[in-house]
């Protein structure tokens, strides 16, 4: 397996470093404010939004699928 370092890899590393720094700076305040687990809650709460944003069409279809699998379909307005 050969692996060559490309410009993209540089950018990835730089981005990771910058994200790390940003988090570490904000983290000070979270720990002092005794809200350490707030970050955890926010990051988990992001998930449904990301799914909806990345796959808008699929998300809608899946939702429709889920709904059609349940008997609620019968209670929904026709169409």
């Amino acid at each position: 397996m050969t692996w060559t370092w490309t410009t993209l890899d540089t950018w990835i590393v730089v981005c990771a470093a910058m994200a790390g720094m940003a988090c570490a700076v904000l983290g000070n305040f979270l720990v002092l404010r005794k809200m350490s687990l707030m970050g955890d809650a926010i990051s988990h709460a992001l998930l449904p939004g990301i799914v909806a944003a990345v796959y808008p069409d699929r998300f809608a279809n899946e939702l429709a699928d889920v709904l059609s699998g349940l008997p609620v379909r019968e209670y929904l307005p026709p169409g």
């Binding site: 720990v31 350490s36 970050g39």
Partner: peptide, 8 residues
């Protein structure tokens, strides 16, 4: 370190 940070 407080408990919440330790758990994190």
């Amino acid at each position: 370190i407080k408990e919440d940070a330790a758990m994190g």
